[in-house]
Each structure stands twice: as structure tokens, then as C-alpha cells.
Amino acid sequence: MGRKRAGSRFTETFTAYTVSSVLDEATGLYVDAETVLYADVAGHVKFPEMTVSEPGQAGQVMAVQDIEVHVTVGATPGVVVGVLWRVDGSTVDPSLTGRVFRTKGPPQAGQVTAHRYPVVSA
């Protein structure tokens, strides 16, 4: 019942993919090539809090915000650290379309209503 309710709140569609550098034989240059792992994945992006921290190390200031991509349990078993999520569409916020996030860890597992992947903006 919880998973069904979670799925009813999914307002975005995603493509999960990897990018690798391949040699273009015609030009002799390396170009980025996408390998799609999953397409048309229903889910949503969640910004758990509006707070953006700015930790400084050795004179570098970085803005950090916790972001999650939620998808149906079992829909994306091959997603590992480094996999990219592109928002292909959103029924509630068109500004999300085209944004890309990078997976930074495995999702919560077990008795969960959705897989929640921790991600960062890519």
C-alpha cells in the first residue's frame, strides 16, 4: 500500500545513463558517448531541505545541498555510484526538465516505499 501511494506521487520521468569517452575514428578525437541503462523511469526529485551549506577547505567555498531521486523499488537495479539521472519531464515543475544529477551512493533498501538515491547536481 505504501509503495502504491509513493508511486502515485511520482511527477518526473528520468533517463538513467552513463557517459564514457570513445575515440571518434573520423576525427581522431575522443567524444562523450551515453549508454542508457533505463529510460522513462517514473519518480521524483526531492530537495529534503532548502539549506545550502558552504563548507570551506583551503580557501575553496563549495555549496552543498542534499538531493534525492526517488523511483519505484526494483525499477533500477543496475544503478551504482556515478550513474547520471536526466529529468526528461515533470508534471509539476518544468524547470526540472533537463537537469542532470549524479548518483553518490546506493539507495535505502529493505522495507521501503521507494528507492531513494542520494544525488548531486552534475
Rank of each mutant, 00 (worst) to 15 (best):
M50R: 09
P55Y: 15
V41Q: 03
L23R: 10
A122R: 13
L84W: 01
T76D: 01
R102S: 12
G110P: 02
D32T: 00
P94K: 07
V19N: 06
M62Q: 11
L23K: 13
A122D: 11
V119D: 08
D93M: 12
V80S: 11
V119A: 05
A75Q: 03
V87C: 09
M50N: 14
Y30I: 10
V79R: 02
E68K: 02
A122G: 15
L29K: 15
T15V: 09
D66W: 02
T91D: 10
V64G: 05
A6W: 02
T35K: 05
H115V: 02
T11A: 14
S20P: 01
F10C: 11
V69T: 03
K4G: 10
A33C: 02
R9P: 11
V31L: 09
S20A: 15
Y117D: 01
L96N: 10
A63Q: 14
V19G: 05
G98I: 12
P77S: 05
F47N: 07
V61T: 09
F47P: 01
E25L: 04
R3G: 02
V45Y: 08
D88K: 01
A33W: 08
L37F: 04
A26W: 15
S53F: 10
D24V: 12
V120A: 08
T97Y: 10
D88Q: 06
F10Y: 15
F10G: 04
V52S: 11
A75D: 09
E54V: 13
V41E: 00
Y38A: 04
G82Q: 07
Q108W: 00
V112P: 00
S90Q: 08
R102Y: 06
G105M: 00
W85P: 00
F10T: 00
P48Y: 10
P106A: 13
H115W: 10
D88E: 09
E12T: 06
Y30P: 10
E54S: 14
A75G: 05
A114H: 00
V73T: 02
H115T: 09
E68Q: 11
M62L: 14
T76R: 02
T15R: 13
H44N: 08
I67W: 05
L96E: 11
P77L: 08
V80E: 10
S53A: 11
M62C: 00
P106K: 03
P77T: 06
E12Q: 11
R86W: 01
V41C: 00
V41W: 01
T72P: 01
G43E: 07
V120K: 14
D88M: 05
H115L: 02
M1V: 13
Y17I: 11
Q60E: 11
T27M: 09
G56T: 14
D93K: 11
F47Y: 14
S20C: 07
M50K: 14
E49S: 15
D88W: 12
A58T: 13
Y30F: 14
T15A: 11
S21W: 05
K46I: 12
T97E: 13
W85V: 04
T27C: 09
R9V: 07
T113P: 01
E34P: 00
L37C: 05
Q108P: 14
G82F: 04
S95K: 13
G43M: 10
G28Q: 06
T35G: 03
I67L: 05
T13V: 13
V31I: 14
T103P: 03
T11V: 12
K104E: 08
E54G: 09
V22T: 14
T13E: 06
Q111E: 15
E68N: 07
F14V: 06
W85K: 00
G110T: 04
A6T: 07
T51N: 13
R86M: 03
P55M: 07
Q65H: 12
